[in-house]
Each structure stands twice: as C-alpha cells, then as structure tokens.
Amino acid sequence: MAWSLPRKVSAALLAILLCTAAATAIFGYSKFEGVLSSLVRSRYSVVVFSIKKDIEDRLALGLPLRQLRQVQDAIEREKIDQPQIQGIEVFDAAGEIIFDTDRGAVGAAVSQDWVQAAQAAGHQTFARSEEDSLIVGLPLVDVLGRVVGAGALRYPAASVAEEVRPLLAGQARSGLILLAGFAALAVLGTYAVLAPFGRRLAAMERQLQTTMAEGGPPPAPADNDPFEARFAAFAASTREALEHMQDATQDVGRLDRLEVRE
C-alpha cells in the first residue's frame, strides 16, 4: 500500500518520539539507579570501614588475623543493628574465610576474584555483584602495608530499586498515557501541516487535467509562489503546445484532404 506524505512524516515523527522516550527513560533510570546504588554502597562501606579499622588496629598490636576473636562478635553486632545486611565476612590473603556472620562458612574459601579485587584495591573499596546480592569490601592492610585479607559485606541487590519501583511504575503508566496523547498530537499536527500542501497539489492536478482536457484558461499564478507560478506557466505552455499540435495536425489534415479533394 502506498503511503501518503503525511503518513510517512508522522511515522518518522512517531519513531523519533518513541526512540527518544525510550532512550531518555533508560538513561534516566540507569543514572538514578547508579546514584542510588552508589549511595547504598557508600553506606555499607562505612560499616565495612569501621570493621576494617577495628581489625587493623588489632593487627597493629601484633595479633594475627585469625586470632581476633572479637571480630566475630563485632560483625554479628553490625548485622543485628542493620538487618538488611545479608552477611559480613572477613577473609585472609589466600581467600579463606576467617570470620563470617554465617558461622558455618568459616573455613570455606571466597572466590579468587574477590581475593584479587582486594589485592588490587589498595586502600579503596571494591565492589562485586553476585546473583541477588551486592558486595562491598575493603582490604585489610597490616603495619607492613601488606594486604592480609579483606572484609566484605553482602547486601541484597534488589533492595536498591525495590523501594522506588512502585513509584516509577505509576510514573511510567502516566508517562505512557501522556506519550500516547502527544503521539496523537504529532499525527494530527503532521496532517495539519501537510494537508494544505496535499490539497494544493490535488488542486493543481485537477487544474492541469481540466486545462488539458477542456481547454479552459490556464490557472492564474497564485500566492507569489514560484512553484505555482512555474506550474501555471507550464500548464499554459503545455496547453499552448497542445493547441499548437492540434492546430498543426488540423492544418496538415486540411492540406492533405484539400489536395485529395481537389
């Protein structure tokens, strides 16, 4: 099916509208989530930092990491204080868990990826994500400046977005309605802008057909529009050419017949 011009233009406009809305929504939400999750991470990193400080002070007293029994109590206290925390673990440089809020995990190994992250982090926090939890960790640095392990805190990944999701869902619904409204406006607007254009083309078309068929007067140049002026001139000269041809044909015919008759 052939598409009329307003249809093509409004399709293009709608496509642009849709893509723009999608892009802004995705980027906007992604930025928001980024800001929010960095905020959440920084909050938990405060917790990890206090644990780190506690452990490092004790390490500085010359105690080996695995003998800092008080750390187990400290991390369990933190978890009770902040129930959203899924778990806190302290592991040594080899990745063996020394203390864990989940006591059953003590002695197990964390993934080598964490160990490397801790080694690379220096004094900075490192972040990791697992299936449905996020991890923020801080390396433990001893008096020699060596990373002897790390403390890591595990918190639910979902909690970040969950709180705002209902709000945003409502927002998305009203946004879609609004978009639909403006999409309709776009279509109407396109037709409004291009309708006179189409009408004038149709009018010129009819004009030309009449001029050519009935030999009516050529259309008067309208509106100072050079195109319409050119069109009028065209219609006139075509008509004129047509008449010339017809006259000439008649003349030739007349000459032809005249001689035959004679």
Partner: peptide, 9 residues
C-alpha cells in the same frame, strides 16, 4: 614497636 611486628617485617 612490637617484637611481633618486627618479626613480621
């Protein structure tokens, strides 16, 4: 300085 730390160093 703790002896333990010196030993570690």
């Amino acid at each position: 300085y703790r002896y333990y730390t010196v030993g570690q160093l």
